[in-house]
Design a protein around this nucleic acid. Structure first.
Lengths: 97, 97
DNA sequence: TGAATGAGATATGTAAACGTATCATGATTT
DNA sequence: AAATCATGATACGTTTACATATCTCATTCA
């Protein structure tokens, strides 16, 4: 009964991508974000949902910023982030439940 | 010893703005997001830090989406959201600690 | 006038996000 | 081969985000 929400897994994957792209270890990110390594690991693997404030700190440590954008502009924002059509870069938007 | 982080207050303010703009009551947003009213109230007043997943659900209930964008593109994204220079609309970016 | 509504607030209990400590494993390096 | 180093994983204790229940206080409205 512990489904490990798909959303959390996606978010974790994004963080991992960003971390590797930044050439940082889990421990370094954890330190920068002010949390423990086991904690960061759980977040990155999608096992646990961080607090909003923790996610902000982690994101910032990875060169990302958490933003709340009107749903209608999500496509435009995404387009902004991948100039050359095909992606793989940041920009996280979770799927509805 | 309960400082009520400035970041949380700002986030709460944004949620309140969005809620009022959407013409919803605290209880309606709480229901849509799947949390209790007292809980949503705490989030909106900045007393408590929601979980990342809760923030996603609340945001979605308000017509917003949580996104993680590269820090370098934050200005561009913000510009996208306020076509007419002066703001007051969504787009949340917290201040560093 | 008084009933309903929206919001602030407090109390108690539970689930889960946190910390610290510790061990295992696979890859790299000396 | 031995020693790092990065990561996965588990255990236990603390803090806090959550639910539910209940009370108050304006405001609105029949």
């Amino acid at each position: 009964m512990n489904a490990i929400s798909e959303t959390l897994r996606e978010l974790g994957d994004l963080l991992r991508q960003a971390r590797l792209a930044a050439g940082l270890t889990q421990e370094q990110v954890a330190d920068l974000a002010g949390i423990s390594r086991p904690r960061y690991r759980d977040i990155e693997t999608g096992i646990a949902a961080a607090r909003a404030t923790t996610l902000m700190n982690v994101s910032r440590a990875l060169g990302l910023e958490m933003m709340l954008v009107p749903q209608a502009m999500v496509p435009a924002v995404r387009a902004l982030m991948r100039p050359r059509d095909d992606d793989d870069l940041p920009a996280f938007v979770s799927q509805p439940d």
